[in-house]
Design a protein around this nucleic acid. Sequence first.
DNA 1: TCTGGGGTCCTAGGACCC
DNA 2: TCTGGGGTCCTAGGACCC
Length: 422
Amino acid sequence: MARVYALIDGNSFYCSCERVFDAKLAKRPVLVLSNNDGCAIARTSEVKALGIKMGDPYFKIRSLCARERVAVFSSNYTLYGDMSRRLNRIYQGWAREIEVYSIDESFLYIAGLVDRDRVGYAKDLRSTVKRWTGIPTCVGIGPTKTLAKLANHTAKKNADLGGVCDFTDPKTRERHLAETAIDNVWGIGRASTAKLLTLDIRTVGDLLEADPKRIRMAMTVVGERIIHELKGVSCLPLDAVPAQRKGLAVTRSFSTAVTGEAKMLEALAAYATRAAEKLRHHGVAAVQGHVFMHSNKHNGDRPIYSSKPLALLEATADTHVLIDAAVHAGKRAWRQGYRYAKAGIVLTDLVSADRIQKSFFQTLDRDERARLMEAIDAVNARFGRGSLFSAAAGIKREWSTKFEMRSPRYTTRWNELPVANA
DNA sequence: TCTGGGGTCCTAGGACCC
DNA sequence: TCTGGGGTCCTAGGACCC
Protein backbone atom coordinates (compact mmCIF):
# COMPACT_ATOMS: atom_id res chain seq x y z
CA MET A 1 0.00 0.00 0.00
CA ALA A 2 1.31 3.43 -0.95
CA ARG A 3 2.26 5.67 1.92
CA VAL A 4 0.29 8.82 2.64
CA TYR A 5 1.38 11.43 5.13
CA ALA A 6 -0.48 14.57 6.16
CA LEU A 7 1.29 17.44 7.86
CA ILE A 8 -1.00 19.72 9.84
CA ASP A 9 0.18 22.85 11.60
CA GLY A 10 -1.26 25.87 13.32
CA ASN A 11 -1.22 29.14 11.40
CA SER A 12 0.96 31.65 13.29
CA PHE A 13 0.40 29.24 16.14
CA TYR A 14 1.40 31.34 19.17
CA CYS A 15 -0.54 34.34 17.81
CA SER A 16 -3.58 32.15 17.17
CA CYS A 17 -3.45 30.88 20.77
CA GLU A 18 -3.58 34.48 21.99
CA ARG A 19 -6.53 35.21 19.70
CA VAL A 20 -8.51 32.24 20.97
CA PHE A 21 -8.83 33.84 24.39
CA ASP A 22 -9.36 37.45 23.37
CA ALA A 23 -11.95 38.09 20.68
CA LYS A 24 -10.81 41.70 20.32
CA LEU A 25 -7.60 40.45 18.70
CA ALA A 26 -9.37 38.89 15.72
CA LYS A 27 -9.01 41.96 13.55
CA ARG A 28 -5.72 43.24 14.94
CA PRO A 29 -2.17 42.32 13.95
CA VAL A 30 -0.68 40.08 16.66
CA LEU A 31 3.00 39.60 17.47
CA VAL A 32 4.57 37.22 20.01
CA LEU A 33 8.07 37.83 21.36
CA SER A 34 10.83 35.46 22.46
CA ASN A 35 12.03 35.09 26.06
CA ASN A 36 13.05 38.38 27.65
CA ASP A 37 10.82 40.10 25.09
CA GLY A 38 13.91 39.98 22.88
CA CYS A 39 12.72 39.43 19.31
CA ALA A 40 9.78 38.54 17.09
CA ILE A 41 9.05 34.80 16.92
CA ALA A 42 5.42 34.56 15.79
CA ARG A 43 3.61 36.96 13.48
CA THR A 44 0.14 37.04 11.99
CA SER A 45 -0.15 37.81 8.27
CA GLU A 46 -0.93 41.47 9.09
CA VAL A 47 2.34 41.73 11.00
CA LYS A 48 4.27 40.12 8.15
CA ALA A 49 2.67 42.65 5.80
CA LEU A 50 4.14 45.44 7.93
CA GLY A 51 7.59 44.11 7.00
CA ILE A 52 8.37 42.69 10.46
CA LYS A 53 10.67 39.70 10.04
CA MET A 54 11.18 36.59 12.10
CA GLY A 55 13.87 37.37 14.67
CA ASP A 56 13.68 41.16 14.40
CA PRO A 57 14.78 42.66 17.76
CA TYR A 58 11.80 44.18 19.49
CA PHE A 59 13.51 47.44 20.41
CA LYS A 60 13.94 48.15 16.70
CA ILE A 61 10.26 47.62 15.82
CA ARG A 62 8.63 48.87 18.99
CA SER A 63 7.55 52.24 17.60
CA LEU A 64 6.24 50.68 14.39
CA CYS A 65 4.16 48.28 16.49
CA ALA A 66 2.74 51.13 18.57
CA ARG A 67 1.90 53.16 15.47
CA GLU A 68 0.13 50.24 13.76
CA ARG A 69 -1.70 49.12 16.94
CA VAL A 70 -0.03 45.71 16.91
CA ALA A 71 -1.05 43.57 19.89
CA VAL A 72 2.31 42.49 21.31
CA PHE A 73 2.72 39.54 23.71
CA SER A 74 5.55 37.96 25.66
CA SER A 75 5.61 34.23 24.98
CA ASN A 76 3.35 32.14 27.18
CA TYR A 77 4.67 28.60 26.72
CA THR A 78 2.37 27.16 29.35
CA LEU A 79 -0.63 28.23 27.28
CA TYR A 80 0.85 27.18 23.91
CA GLY A 81 1.94 23.79 25.26
CA ASP A 82 -1.53 23.10 26.62
CA MET A 83 -3.21 24.11 23.33
CA SER A 84 -0.76 21.86 21.50
CA ARG A 85 -1.83 18.88 23.61
CA ARG A 86 -5.47 19.61 22.78
CA LEU A 87 -4.73 19.63 19.05
CA ASN A 88 -2.87 16.34 19.21
CA ARG A 89 -5.70 14.68 21.09
CA ILE A 90 -7.95 15.57 18.17
CA TYR A 91 -5.44 14.32 15.59
CA GLN A 92 -5.32 10.93 17.34
CA GLY A 93 -8.86 10.27 16.15
CA TRP A 94 -8.03 11.18 12.57
CA ALA A 95 -4.99 9.02 11.79
CA ARG A 96 -3.57 5.53 12.05
CA GLU A 97 -0.57 6.98 13.85
CA ILE A 98 0.72 10.44 14.56
CA GLU A 99 4.16 11.92 15.06
CA VAL A 100 4.23 15.09 17.14
CA TYR A 101 6.96 16.92 15.27
CA SER A 102 6.96 20.26 17.08
CA ILE A 103 4.74 22.34 19.33
CA ASP A 104 2.51 23.24 16.37
CA GLU A 105 3.14 20.55 13.75
CA SER A 106 2.19 16.90 13.56
CA PHE A 107 2.50 14.26 10.87
CA LEU A 108 -0.57 12.06 10.47
CA TYR A 109 -0.19 8.69 8.79
CA ILE A 110 -3.37 8.17 6.82
CA ALA A 111 -2.55 5.46 4.25
CA GLY A 112 -5.54 3.16 3.82
CA LEU A 113 -7.63 5.42 6.02
CA VAL A 114 -8.40 7.97 3.34
CA ASP A 115 -8.10 6.69 -0.20
CA ARG A 116 -10.38 8.83 -2.28
CA ASP A 117 -11.28 12.28 -1.09
CA ARG A 118 -8.12 13.33 0.73
CA VAL A 119 -8.81 17.02 0.28
CA GLY A 120 -12.30 16.58 1.74
CA TYR A 121 -10.86 14.70 4.69
CA ALA A 122 -8.34 17.46 5.34
CA LYS A 123 -10.98 20.17 5.14
CA ASP A 124 -13.13 18.30 7.65
CA LEU A 125 -10.15 17.94 9.94
CA ARG A 126 -9.38 21.67 9.72
CA SER A 127 -12.92 22.69 10.50
CA THR A 128 -13.15 20.27 13.43
CA VAL A 129 -9.94 21.64 14.91
CA LYS A 130 -11.16 25.20 14.40
CA ARG A 131 -14.50 24.46 16.03
CA TRP A 132 -13.10 22.58 19.02
CA THR A 133 -10.03 24.71 19.79
CA GLY A 134 -10.35 27.96 17.82
CA ILE A 135 -7.00 27.38 16.09
CA PRO A 136 -6.77 27.82 12.29
CA THR A 137 -4.56 25.25 10.55
CA CYS A 138 -3.22 24.17 7.18
CA VAL A 139 -2.82 20.63 5.88
CA GLY A 140 -0.32 19.27 3.35
CA ILE A 141 -0.57 15.74 1.99
CA GLY A 142 2.03 13.66 0.19
CA PRO A 143 3.64 10.24 -0.25
CA THR A 144 6.67 11.33 1.81
CA LYS A 145 7.13 13.58 4.80
CA THR A 146 9.17 16.06 2.77
CA LEU A 147 6.40 16.33 0.16
CA ALA A 148 3.75 16.68 2.87
CA LYS A 149 5.79 19.56 4.32
CA LEU A 150 6.08 21.19 0.93
CA ALA A 151 2.36 20.70 0.26
CA ASN A 152 1.63 22.38 3.59
CA HIS A 153 3.85 25.28 2.60
CA THR A 154 2.05 25.53 -0.75
CA ALA A 155 -1.32 25.56 1.00
CA LYS A 156 -0.15 28.47 3.16
CA LYS A 157 1.11 30.50 0.20
CA ASN A 158 -1.99 30.04 -1.98
CA ALA A 159 -5.11 31.33 -0.27
CA ASP A 160 -7.29 29.91 -3.07
CA LEU A 161 -6.43 26.34 -1.97
CA GLY A 162 -8.53 26.73 1.17
CA GLY A 163 -5.82 25.63 3.56
CA VAL A 164 -5.29 22.21 1.99
CA CYS A 165 -2.87 20.95 -0.65
CA ASP A 166 -2.51 17.37 -1.86
CA PHE A 167 0.77 16.35 -3.52
CA THR A 168 -0.06 12.67 -3.90
CA ASP A 169 -0.40 13.07 -7.64
CA PRO A 170 2.97 13.64 -9.40
CA LYS A 171 1.38 15.91 -12.04
CA THR A 172 0.01 18.26 -9.38
CA ARG A 173 3.40 18.38 -7.68
CA GLU A 174 5.20 19.18 -10.90
CA ARG A 175 2.85 22.04 -11.63
CA HIS A 176 3.35 23.64 -8.22
CA LEU A 177 7.00 22.85 -7.64
CA ALA A 178 8.64 23.69 -10.96
CA GLU A 179 9.04 27.31 -9.87
CA THR A 180 9.22 26.85 -6.08
CA ALA A 181 12.52 28.16 -4.68
CA ILE A 182 14.73 25.48 -3.12
CA ASP A 183 15.02 27.16 0.25
CA ASN A 184 11.38 26.28 0.92
CA VAL A 185 12.30 22.60 1.05
CA TRP A 186 12.53 21.01 4.49
CA GLY A 187 16.23 20.48 5.21
CA ILE A 188 17.63 23.03 2.76
CA GLY A 189 18.82 26.02 4.76
CA ARG A 190 20.97 29.04 4.06
CA ALA A 191 24.27 27.26 3.51
CA SER A 192 22.88 24.59 1.19
CA THR A 193 20.90 27.15 -0.77
CA ALA A 194 24.09 29.13 -1.43
CA LYS A 195 25.93 25.99 -2.55
CA LEU A 196 23.12 24.88 -4.84
CA LEU A 197 22.88 28.33 -6.41
CA THR A 198 26.53 28.04 -7.47
CA LEU A 199 25.48 24.83 -9.28
CA ASP A 200 22.74 26.84 -11.00
CA ILE A 201 20.02 25.06 -9.07
CA ARG A 202 17.36 27.56 -8.06
CA THR A 203 14.04 25.76 -8.01
CA VAL A 204 12.70 22.40 -6.91
CA GLY A 205 12.30 21.67 -10.63
CA ASP A 206 16.05 22.25 -11.14
CA LEU A 207 16.80 20.05 -8.16
CA LEU A 208 14.77 17.14 -9.51
CA GLU A 209 16.58 17.27 -12.83
CA ALA A 210 20.07 17.59 -11.34
CA ASP A 211 22.62 14.79 -11.19
CA PRO A 212 22.21 13.20 -7.72
CA LYS A 213 26.00 12.77 -7.49
CA ARG A 214 26.54 16.53 -7.67
CA ILE A 215 23.90 17.06 -5.01
CA ARG A 216 25.59 14.52 -2.79
CA MET A 217 28.91 16.34 -3.25
CA ALA A 218 27.31 19.60 -2.16
CA MET A 219 25.04 18.32 0.60
CA THR A 220 26.25 14.84 1.64
CA VAL A 221 23.74 12.07 2.25
CA VAL A 222 21.28 14.58 3.64
CA GLY A 223 20.85 16.11 0.18
CA GLU A 224 20.53 12.74 -1.47
CA ARG A 225 17.76 11.80 0.92
CA ILE A 226 15.90 15.03 0.18
CA ILE A 227 15.99 14.29 -3.56
CA HIS A 228 14.52 10.82 -3.03
CA GLU A 229 11.82 12.21 -0.80
CA LEU A 230 10.96 14.91 -3.36
CA LYS A 231 10.61 12.24 -6.02
CA GLY A 232 8.12 10.38 -3.83
CA VAL A 233 10.45 7.71 -2.41
CA SER A 234 10.02 7.70 1.35
CA CYS A 235 13.28 7.77 3.35
CA LEU A 236 12.10 9.37 6.58
CA PRO A 237 9.87 7.07 8.63
CA LEU A 238 7.10 8.27 10.90
CA ASP A 239 8.43 8.45 14.46
CA ALA A 240 5.26 7.63 16.32
CA VAL A 241 7.15 6.85 19.52
CA PRO A 242 9.38 9.71 20.61
CA ALA A 243 13.00 8.58 20.75
CA GLN A 244 14.80 8.55 24.08
CA ARG A 245 16.25 12.01 24.36
CA LYS A 246 19.97 12.43 24.02
CA GLY A 247 20.53 15.73 25.78
CA LEU A 248 18.75 18.47 27.63
CA ALA A 249 19.55 22.08 28.41
CA VAL A 250 18.24 24.99 30.42
CA THR A 251 19.75 28.25 29.23
CA ARG A 252 18.51 31.82 29.63
CA SER A 253 19.52 35.37 28.86
CA PHE A 254 19.40 37.64 31.89
CA SER A 255 16.98 40.54 31.97
CA THR A 256 19.92 42.76 33.06
CA ALA A 257 23.62 41.90 32.90
CA VAL A 258 24.97 39.88 35.83
CA THR A 259 28.25 41.18 37.28
CA GLY A 260 28.34 39.50 40.70
CA GLU A 261 29.29 35.89 41.38
CA ALA A 262 26.54 35.29 43.93
CA LYS A 263 23.84 36.25 41.40
CA MET A 264 25.40 34.00 38.78
CA LEU A 265 25.46 31.00 41.12
CA GLU A 266 21.85 31.71 42.07
CA ALA A 267 20.84 31.63 38.42
CA LEU A 268 22.77 28.41 37.78
CA ALA A 269 21.09 26.81 40.80
CA ALA A 270 17.68 27.82 39.42
CA TYR A 271 18.54 26.38 35.99
CA ALA A 272 19.81 23.17 37.60
CA THR A 273 16.51 22.90 39.46
CA ARG A 274 14.57 23.16 36.23
CA ALA A 275 16.93 20.73 34.47
CA ALA A 276 16.40 18.14 37.24
CA GLU A 277 12.62 18.53 36.89
CA LYS A 278 12.91 17.92 33.16
CA LEU A 279 15.08 14.84 33.74
CA ARG A 280 12.54 13.33 36.10
CA HIS A 281 9.68 14.21 33.78
CA HIS A 282 11.37 12.25 30.97
CA GLY A 283 12.43 9.38 33.22
CA VAL A 284 16.14 9.91 32.57
CA ALA A 285 19.25 10.80 34.54
CA ALA A 286 22.31 12.81 33.57
CA VAL A 287 25.80 11.37 33.43
CA GLN A 288 27.67 14.30 31.93
CA GLY A 289 27.17 17.98 31.38
CA HIS A 290 28.55 21.46 31.83
CA VAL A 291 27.61 24.98 32.79
CA PHE A 292 28.48 28.02 30.70
CA MET A 293 28.25 31.80 30.95
CA HIS A 294 28.93 34.47 28.38
CA SER A 295 28.69 38.17 27.65
CA ASN A 296 26.50 39.92 25.08
CA LYS A 297 27.84 39.49 21.54
CA HIS A 298 25.99 42.48 20.12
CA ASN A 299 26.58 45.42 22.43
CA GLY A 300 30.36 45.84 22.50
CA ASP A 301 30.84 44.47 26.05
CA ARG A 302 34.21 42.82 26.65
CA PRO A 303 33.72 39.31 25.22
CA ILE A 304 33.93 36.21 27.40
CA TYR A 305 32.74 32.65 27.09
CA SER A 306 33.49 30.41 30.04
CA SER A 307 32.41 26.84 30.62
CA LYS A 308 33.22 24.04 33.09
CA PRO A 309 32.11 20.41 33.26
CA LEU A 310 29.84 19.13 36.02
CA ALA A 311 31.51 16.69 38.37
CA LEU A 312 28.87 13.97 38.62
CA LEU A 313 29.87 10.78 40.42
CA GLU A 314 26.94 8.86 39.01
CA ALA A 315 23.88 9.35 36.84
CA THR A 316 21.49 11.63 38.68
CA ALA A 317 18.13 13.39 38.42
CA ASP A 318 18.34 14.71 41.97
CA THR A 319 17.76 18.45 42.25
CA HIS A 320 20.20 19.00 45.09
CA VAL A 321 22.98 16.93 43.58
CA LEU A 322 22.58 18.87 40.34
CA ILE A 323 22.49 22.23 42.13
CA ASP A 324 25.69 21.38 44.01
CA ALA A 325 27.41 20.31 40.80
CA ALA A 326 26.23 23.39 38.91
CA VAL A 327 27.29 25.81 41.65
CA HIS A 328 30.65 24.09 41.96
CA ALA A 329 31.27 24.26 38.21
CA GLY A 330 29.95 27.83 38.16
CA LYS A 331 32.51 28.92 40.75
CA ARG A 332 35.29 27.46 38.66
CA ALA A 333 33.98 29.03 35.46
CA TRP A 334 33.47 32.46 37.05
CA ARG A 335 35.80 35.30 35.93
CA GLN A 336 35.36 38.56 37.77
CA GLY A 337 35.09 41.83 35.84
CA TYR A 338 32.75 40.93 32.99
CA ARG A 339 29.13 41.70 32.23
CA TYR A 340 27.39 38.36 31.71
CA ALA A 341 24.33 38.29 29.47
CA LYS A 342 23.48 34.61 29.49
CA ALA A 343 24.22 31.36 31.29
CA GLY A 344 23.00 27.79 31.25
CA ILE A 345 23.34 24.18 32.20
CA VAL A 346 23.70 21.60 29.45
CA LEU A 347 23.31 17.87 30.09
CA THR A 348 24.87 15.96 27.22
CA ASP A 349 24.71 12.30 28.21
CA LEU A 350 21.45 10.89 29.52
CA VAL A 351 20.57 7.37 30.60
CA SER A 352 17.27 5.76 31.42
CA ALA A 353 16.57 6.39 35.11
CA ASP A 354 15.88 2.71 35.84
CA ARG A 355 19.33 1.72 34.61
CA ILE A 356 21.48 3.97 36.76
CA GLN A 357 25.00 2.74 37.28
CA LYS A 358 25.78 2.75 40.98
CA SER A 359 28.84 4.66 42.04
CA PHE A 360 31.41 3.02 44.24
CA PHE A 361 31.40 6.23 46.27
CA GLN A 362 27.65 6.25 46.73
CA THR A 363 26.83 8.19 49.86
CA LEU A 364 23.17 9.16 49.67
CA ASP A 365 20.29 6.87 50.39
CA ARG A 366 18.95 6.68 46.88
CA ASP A 367 15.42 5.54 47.72
CA GLU A 368 15.02 8.24 50.29
CA ARG A 369 16.21 10.88 47.83
CA ALA A 370 13.89 9.56 45.12
CA ARG A 371 10.93 9.87 47.50
CA LEU A 372 11.96 13.42 48.37
CA MET A 373 12.09 14.35 44.66
CA GLU A 374 8.66 12.79 44.10
CA ALA A 375 7.27 14.84 46.96
CA ILE A 376 8.75 18.06 45.58
CA ASP A 377 7.38 17.32 42.10
CA ALA A 378 3.94 16.59 43.55
CA VAL A 379 3.85 19.87 45.46
CA ASN A 380 4.93 21.82 42.39
CA ALA A 381 2.42 20.02 40.17
CA ARG A 382 -0.34 20.94 42.58
CA PHE A 383 0.59 24.53 43.43
CA GLY A 384 2.46 25.56 40.30
CA ARG A 385 6.07 25.23 39.23
CA GLY A 386 8.48 26.96 41.61
CA SER A 387 6.22 26.74 44.68
CA LEU A 388 8.83 24.65 46.49
CA PHE A 389 12.50 25.15 45.65
CA SER A 390 15.96 25.35 47.10
CA ALA A 391 16.96 28.72 48.56
CA ALA A 392 20.24 28.36 46.62
CA ALA A 393 18.24 29.31 43.53
CA GLY A 394 17.53 32.76 44.96
CA ILE A 395 14.42 34.49 46.21
CA LYS A 396 14.52 37.90 44.52
CA ARG A 397 15.95 36.82 41.19
CA GLU A 398 16.62 40.25 39.67
CA TRP A 399 18.34 38.44 36.80
CA SER A 400 15.35 36.37 35.80
CA THR A 401 13.78 36.48 32.36
CA LYS A 402 11.38 39.29 31.48
CA PHE A 403 7.80 38.57 30.38
CA GLU A 404 6.27 42.02 30.67
CA MET A 405 3.45 41.45 28.19
CA ARG A 406 2.45 37.89 28.99
CA SER A 407 -1.18 36.90 28.68
CA PRO A 408 -2.83 34.86 31.48
CA ARG A 409 -2.25 31.10 31.57
CA TYR A 410 -5.95 30.69 30.76
CA THR A 411 -6.07 26.92 30.58
CA THR A 412 -3.70 25.76 33.29
CA ARG A 413 -4.11 28.08 36.29
CA TRP A 414 -7.37 28.33 38.17
CA ASN A 415 -6.72 31.94 39.13
CA GLU A 416 -6.03 32.91 35.51
CA LEU A 417 -9.18 31.43 33.96
CA PRO A 418 -10.82 33.61 31.33
CA VAL A 419 -13.92 35.44 32.58
CA ALA A 420 -17.09 35.55 30.51
CA ASN A 421 -19.65 38.25 31.17
CA ALA A 422 -23.20 37.32 30.25
C1' DT B 1 66.10 10.42 1.21
C1' DC B 2 62.51 6.45 2.52
C1' DT B 3 57.78 6.20 7.53
C1' DG B 4 51.36 0.94 6.45
C1' DG B 5 46.69 0.06 6.64
C1' DG B 6 43.05 -0.49 8.60
C1' DG B 7 39.60 -0.29 12.38
C1' DT B 8 36.82 2.24 16.49
C1' DC B 9 35.54 5.84 19.44
C1' DC B 10 35.10 10.49 20.77
C1' DT B 11 34.57 15.44 20.18
C1' DA B 12 33.93 19.85 18.05
C1' DG B 13 31.68 22.29 14.83
C1' DG B 14 28.46 22.99 11.04
C1' DA B 15 23.88 22.84 9.39
C1' DC B 16 19.25 22.60 10.04
C1' DC B 17 14.77 22.60 12.40
C1' DC B 18 10.78 24.94 15.10
C1' DT C 1 19.20 50.78 27.35
C1' DC C 2 16.96 46.68 24.56
C1' DT C 3 19.07 40.85 19.68
C1' DG C 4 15.46 33.52 22.36
C1' DG C 5 15.70 28.68 23.62
C1' DG C 6 16.11 23.94 22.76
C1' DG C 7 16.75 20.23 19.98
C1' DT C 8 18.77 16.59 16.03
C1' DC C 9 21.93 14.73 12.66
C1' DC C 10 26.24 14.54 10.02
C1' DT C 11 31.21 15.00 9.10
C1' DA C 12 36.04 15.66 9.83
C1' DG C 13 39.79 14.91 12.43
C1' DG C 14 42.40 13.29 16.41
C1' DA C 15 43.53 9.54 19.62
C1' DC C 16 44.17 5.04 20.06
C1' DC C 17 44.58 0.16 18.85
C1' DC C 18 46.33 -4.01 16.37
